[in-house]
């Protein structure tokens, strides 16, 4: 028997293998868009060299919210209550602002039952990557419409949706999120670049990722099917990402490309695919989203970016150490303080 030496496994800048970023075996349907998103999350965290123990994964309830079990087993995870992940994430980040946090939600979990908490999460600019795995239907309850389903789209049963869709991206931009984009689970390259940029951002990242449900919403008449996305996806920009630990080798044309330096020193390069594209202009971004709806297009790309606005945890001016593990000497005032208070009450 011939002996061969196994090639050295590929590692990232921390010396970790992709294997170190894996999770449990998925229990979602074969072909589900959510699985592709989990793969891209693994790739992005691996390539960016995020220490798995420094990440918290949070989710609500639904097919999407199961997916944190399928990536990064070495990160603490919290599968919370339907539509209420934003509040749990807020509390967790207040307790430990030094952690990276990634929230996975769905269209029902975000735009229906969770729309209240979603709105206030966006307002606060909490440093959280918030991913909506958006398929327009409730999978676990067998295929009812959600609030992101487009007007006129059709269920398998033939039921037509007669209410307008909530555009979570337009909403997030209006509410103050500082990194807003849309992608497609089938667009490997774009989604990976956007996720890597999301990791480099400090503030709320809101990514709506169209993620077809192969079981309940991938048929003729659906506007969230693989086929519909292949035919109607319109990238507003080409997304390139150069992490801070790599040389910026490739030149770009300043006339056609926005080069944005991210919080960690990485560069996000957004090449215009439309003349009126400007990722710093909220009004224009919302206008383009509205116009795309009228035309039946699904715009993808980074719509809006603000790297200056302070995040929620910055605004609170907290001490550098995590609040959760501060020693008693810093959290319990002295006996003299109590005596001072008591004497004032006498």
């Amino acid at each position: 028997m011939a002996t061969t030496t196994a090639p050295n496994p590929k590692v990232n800048r921390l010396g970790l293998q992709v294997l170190d970023y894996r999770g449990g075996k998925t229990t979602l349907c074969a072909g589900c868009g959510h699985n592709a998103i989990s793969e891209r999350i693994i790739d992005a965290l691996y390539e960016m060299g995020v220490q798995p123990e420094r990440l918290m994964k949070l989710s609500g309830i639904g097919c999407s919210s199961k997916s944190p079990a399928y990536f990064l087993s070495r990160a603490h995870s919290f599968n919370s209550v339907h539509g209420r992940m934003p509040s749990v994430a807020t509390g967790a980040l207040l307790a430990n602002k030094t952690m990276k946090a990634l929230g996975v939600s769905g269209d029902g979990d975000t735009a229906s039952i969770g729309v209240g908490q979603f709105i206030h999460l966006m307002r606060r600019n909490l440093p959280l990557i918030y991913i909506i795995e958006d398929n327009g239907v409730y999978g676990l309850t067998k295929g009812q419409f959600s609030a992101t389903a487009d007007l006129g789209s059709k269920l398998k049963t033939g039921v037509i949706n007669d209410l307008p869709a909530i555009d979570t991206c337009a909403l997030a931009i209006q509410l103050g999120a500082t990194f807003v984009g849309r992608s497609f689970s089938g667009d490997k390259k774009q989604l990976l670049a956007m996720l890597k940029a999301a990791i480099a951002h400090k503030g709320t990242v809101m990514l709506d990722v169209i993620s077809p449900c192969v079981t309940f919403n991938d048929h003729e008449g659906s506007t969230k099917s693989y086929k519909y996305m292949q035919e109607h996806e319109e990238a507003i920009t080409e997304v390139g990402f150069v992490p801070h630990f790599e040389d910026i080798a490739v030149d770009y044309d300043a006339g056609t490309t926005y080069d944005v330096q991210m919080h960690d020193g990485s560069h996000l390069r957004l090449r215009k695919l439309r003349d009126d594209y400007n990722p710093n202009d909220r009004a224009s971004a919302v206008k383009q989203l509205m116009e795309a709806h009228e035309k039946g297009e699904v715009l993808t790309g980074v719509f809006y970016l603000d790297t200056e606005k302070p995040s929620f945890t910055d605004m609170l001016n907290l001490v550098d150490q995590p609040l959760g593990t501060l020693p008693e000497s810093r959290t319990r005032p002295s006996k003299q303080v109590l005596q001072e208070i008591m004497s004032k009450l006498q």
Binding site: M56, P86, G91, A95, I119, L323
Partner: peptide, 21 residues
């Protein structure tokens, strides 16, 4: 918070991550 649901959600998230909330 925006309502009591969020208020208690934050409390439990913070407690989970180690804070006295």
């Amino acid at each position: 918070a925006e309502d009591e649901l969020a208020a208690v959600g934050m409390v439990l998230g913070a407690g989970w991550a180690g804070a006295r909330s």
